[in-house]
Design a binder for these strands. Sequence first.
DNA 1: CGTGTGACGCGAG
DNA 2: CCTCGCGCCACAC
Length: 105
Amino acid sequence: MYERTLNFRSEVIALVKSIPRGRLMTYGQIAALAGSPRAARVVGGIAHYGDPALPWQRVVNKKGYLASGYPGGRRGHLAALENEGIKITNNRAPIESLIWWPKTK
DNA sequence: CGTGTGACGCGAG
DNA sequence: CCTCGCGCCACAC
């Protein structure tokens, strides 16, 4: 279906908005839930050019490392995450314990 | 309207 | 263990 692409952007936005404070999701995870498991890059693209008001600070890469293009750089990203109670060590977040799954238990 | 780049991820070598 | 390359979609120019 050709409306898959339109849904993709909407899904990504909806997913990002649904991430609770203090929780994290990965780009690949969001991409997969939005319908394209290998479109992690696209999520990054939406993050940069899309709606800046969304809580993108709760989105990190699979290793838990911070985003380079975040406003203020990794430093700004780090500050935003620590502001939510997430402890960052060496530019990396403990995603294993903070990862958030919207529909999974 | 066509092309390039990007806040990523994973398989192969 | 490491480095390299492809895939994916959106958005800027």
